[in-house]
Amino acid sequence: MTAEKPKLLEAEGIKQSFVDGAKTVEILHGISLALDRGELVALAGPSGSGKSTLLAILGGLLLPRSGTVRIDGVDMITLRAHHLSRLRREKIGFVIQGLGLLPAMTVLDNIALPLIPSGGAERADLERLNTLLERLEISKLASTRIDKLSGGERQRVAIARALVLDPALLLLDEPTASLDKANAERVLALLTELRQSTSNGQSENRPGILMATHDPRILNSDAVDRVLELREGRLV
């Protein structure tokens, strides 16, 4: 008898609230969801429905009021801060809504940011970096400053940075919100390609992708495996 392999991401009973003056506002009312490797799942919902907060909790950036979040079977909520940071670093790639790029730095320096705390880019990292740059069609922009790039190019840089440590889980917040049709399709094609292949070609290591979006171009796309809809803090 073999133990069942844990899902890449499992969240159960996630509740979150914040205090606004004298009253407590409930944002998430017991969210449960799961994601497997190679899955591309969209988290839909209007602005203010709690999508970004849920992403922050699933990514280990915010502690929920209650509930559990497991990555590859490891409960993130009970981990000590140092171990949680390490888990985040090793398993999760983030692309935030504002992209979070450092405008005075070059494309390459922004993408290499995650490598710095482990001592900088080694040969294997450089190879992966080059592969990523080529795959995302930004090789020629490597030494260009971020503030000289178009919106679509910036988006690809943010995705490249999230992928540089080869994460198991990729979380994206509104990745196409400010892009035109061509660039939005390009990002979607890229994500589709990503979940079908890995840097080392092994299917069991394909990343699972969860993206918060209310972009109909994505929600109606065949590339998306499932759409989870969040309304007023509940999955419907």
Partner: peptide, 12 residues
Amino acid sequence: GVLLISGWEFRD
């Protein structure tokens, strides 16, 4: 914030 999201730890 950017560094934290890029996988940096608080101590880094």
